[in-house]
Amino acid sequence: MTNTDNFFKVGTIVNTHGIRGEVKIMAITDFAEERFQKGASLFIDTKQGRVPVTVKSSRLHKNAWLVLFDGVSNINEIEKYKGDDVYVEGNSRPELGDDEYYYDEIIDSEVVDLSGNHIGIVKEIMTTGANDVWIVKREGQSDALIPLIDDVVKEINVNDKLITIDVLEGLLD
């Protein structure tokens, strides 16, 4: 993989779709509609380097985005990118409001309880509709599911990658 400084992963090309060159992208961004809108500039991260692409069209289909890039007219031109990650350049990320965070600011953050005891590391984020759920990897235990709600998540420090939660009864069972 190439250097990703100032580039942020927004998804992975998991498959092709049809014969016209569409790809199926599993998005990992809160801004999927914006990221994959017509005219959006993206970068496919390949073993040979980063390939700039422009979105020609996109649509949401079964929890994935079907995207066609400019200049691609058939499956043979795009199949080689299957499994590659898709990035956006950092300076094209919009500023977020207070209490809003990009996934990459949360992933790999340490989670501690109110007393500062280590619980685990955020390894993945699930978007459930009502609120996000953080999947926290714990040593020697099953993963914990932490809902992103005010009653549980008390402090998020993106600079130190440290999240403090209130462990409500049953939360870590």
Rank of each mutant, 00 (worst) to 15 (best):
I125L: 10
I135T: 09
Y87N: 04
A40D: 12
L162P: 01
L171Y: 01
K9N: 14
K47I: 07
L96H: 07
P94Q: 07
P147H: 07
S73P: 05
E33Y: 03
N157Y: 03
W65T: 00
D99P: 00
V53Y: 00
E34S: 15
G11P: 13
I106V: 12
D160R: 04
I75G: 01
W134L: 13
V23Q: 01
D150T: 11
I156R: 02
I156P: 00
K80Y: 06
M26Q: 13
S109K: 01
P94W: 03
Y101A: 14
E155N: 14
G129W: 08
S109C: 09
K9A: 14
T2E: 10
D173G: 13
H17V: 11
D166F: 06
I25N: 00
K137R: 06
D84W: 02
N117A: 11
S41L: 10
V167L: 05
G18C: 08
Y102P: 15
K24S: 14
S57D: 04
N117W: 03
T127G: 13
V111L: 07
A40W: 00
K56A: 12
G116S: 05
I75N: 10
V88F: 00
F36T: 02
L66Y: 02
A40G: 05
D166C: 05
G120F: 01
G11H: 01
L114I: 08
N159F: 05
D85N: 11
N91H: 14
D99F: 15
T12H: 01
T127Q: 15
A144K: 08
D84G: 03
W65Y: 15
G97H: 14
V158Q: 12
I75Y: 01
V152E: 10
N74A: 08
F36C: 06
Q48H: 13
D143P: 08
V55R: 01
V136K: 00
